[in-house]
Amino acid sequence: MMATAQRSIIPPQSLIWGLLLANGFLIALMLALAKAATSQGMPAMTYAFWQTLIAGAVLLVCAGKRRSLLAPRLSRYFLISGLTGIAIPNAIGFYLVTKLGAGFTGIMYALPPIFTFLLAAGLGLEKRSWIKLAGLSIAVVACAWIVLQRHSEISSPNALWFAMGLLIPAMLSIGNVYRSVAWPSGVKPMILASGTLLASSATLGLFAGLTRTSIFPETTGLQLVSIVGVQGLLTALTYLCAFELQRRSNPVFYSQLGAVAAMFGLLIGVIWFNERYSVGIWLGALVVILGLRISNRTKPTSPEI
């Protein structure tokens, strides 16, 4: 009876939206910390490696049944989930944040919803809904508008940076669908988050070796070490929340996490880094929120699996 009462304190819908907002804020904060570290000379690949290694180790220590990480059936899940959801998009994001700013890079994390929706609908994981498609389309078009506005504000922009940025939503969309389709039964979110983060750190370490990127930069000082340590703890909390959100929602609802992170990213960019955005960018941000609001005008049970 007590357990039932505890479960009823927070309605399922409120819990899901709370996880979405908290997770979006944590992702935006992670990008801000990444900019603070990489702008001091730490390579993006190195930063992403230590971020995921520390976070995965923290969750591993806190998790029970650690031996389940070695289960053969989970190896492929950890590898694919780690590459598509963490290693590739984060390494690119941490590199671009020093080139294009925290706010703009955060926008790249807002683009996956419509691609995730199309993938999920094609696989039969999501019911076809014109309202949802219209809302997500409005949000993505608004994000594209922000990209164009930001492009015009950057002096001597490099087209390759923007092309690299598009790999972030592409990888995240694939990862969103894969994690739901291949979700291992009977495994706790903390174990899945830990294994995915550790698999990501292993692949990033391999990439660093292949590209001759130092894992222990000589310029690393106490301040950088502190930032990396805080980032590792934040990342552990972020991905624990992320896997819990994915367990409670479907791929399309989960993919809206990026848009929430993008909005927080704009605010953090202004408050922390004194980044300045035009009226057009702020109007685009409002349209993103409007589009997401429209896309969620479905039955209350739609976010639940």
Results as ranks from 00 to 15, higher is better:
residue 146 I to Q: 05
residue 149 Q to A: 10
residue 149 Q to K: 03
residue 154 I to L: 11
residue 155 S to H: 13
residue 155 S to N: 09
residue 156 S to A: 15
residue 157 P to W: 00
residue 158 N to S: 13
residue 159 A to L: 06
residue 159 A to V: 15
residue 159 A to E: 12
residue 160 L to M: 13
residue 161 W to I: 02
residue 161 W to R: 05
residue 162 F to L: 09
residue 164 M to N: 08
residue 164 M to F: 07
residue 165 G to C: 03
residue 165 G to K: 02
residue 166 L to G: 02
residue 167 L to F: 12
residue 167 L to M: 15
residue 167 L to S: 06
residue 168 I to F: 03
residue 168 I to R: 06
residue 168 I to A: 05
residue 171 M to P: 04
residue 171 M to W: 01
residue 171 M to I: 07
residue 171 M to F: 12
residue 173 S to N: 10
residue 174 I to R: 01
residue 174 I to Y: 15
residue 174 I to G: 12
residue 175 G to H: 08
residue 177 V to F: 09
residue 178 Y to S: 03
residue 178 Y to E: 03
residue 179 R to P: 00
residue 180 S to E: 04
residue 180 S to Y: 04
residue 181 V to T: 11
residue 183 W to F: 12
residue 183 W to S: 01
residue 183 W to N: 08
residue 184 P to H: 07
residue 184 P to R: 06
residue 184 P to S: 06
residue 186 G to A: 10
residue 186 G to S: 02
residue 190 M to L: 11
residue 190 M to T: 05
residue 190 M to W: 01
residue 191 I to Q: 15
residue 192 L to P: 05
residue 194 S to V: 15
residue 195 G to F: 03
residue 195 G to E: 04
residue 195 G to S: 02
residue 195 G to D: 10
residue 196 T to R: 07
residue 199 A to M: 11
residue 200 S to N: 10
residue 201 S to N: 08
residue 201 S to P: 03
residue 203 T to R: 04
residue 203 T to L: 14
residue 204 L to N: 02
residue 204 L to F: 08
residue 204 L to A: 04
residue 205 G to F: 06
residue 207 F to I: 11
residue 208 A to R: 02
residue 209 G to R: 08
residue 211 T to L: 15
residue 212 R to Y: 14
residue 213 T to N: 01
residue 214 S to V: 07
residue 214 S to C: 05
residue 215 I to L: 15
residue 215 I to W: 07
residue 215 I to T: 03
residue 217 P to F: 02
residue 217 P to Y: 06
residue 217 P to R: 11
residue 217 P to D: 09
residue 218 E to F: 02
residue 218 E to C: 01
residue 219 T to R: 06
residue 219 T to V: 09
residue 220 T to Y: 02
residue 220 T to G: 08
residue 221 G to A: 12
residue 222 L to Y: 09
residue 223 Q to E: 14
residue 223 Q to P: 00
residue 223 Q to S: 15
residue 225 V to T: 09
residue 227 I to Q: 09
residue 228 V to Y: 01
residue 229 G to P: 00
residue 230 V to E: 05
residue 231 Q to M: 14
residue 231 Q to L: 07
residue 232 G to R: 06
residue 233 L to R: 00
residue 234 L to A: 08
residue 236 A to L: 07
residue 237 L to N: 00
residue 237 L to C: 12
residue 238 T to N: 13
residue 238 T to G: 00
residue 239 Y to S: 08
residue 241 C to S: 14
residue 241 C to W: 10
residue 242 A to N: 14
residue 242 A to W: 10
residue 242 A to F: 12
residue 243 F to S: 04
residue 243 F to Q: 14
residue 244 E to P: 03
residue 245 L to T: 08
residue 246 Q to K: 15
residue 246 Q to N: 15
residue 247 R to Y: 08
residue 248 R to V: 07
residue 248 R to W: 11
residue 250 N to I: 04
residue 250 N to S: 10
residue 251 P to R: 12
residue 252 V to S: 12
residue 252 V to Q: 03
residue 253 F to E: 02
residue 253 F to L: 05
residue 253 F to I: 04
residue 255 S to C: 11
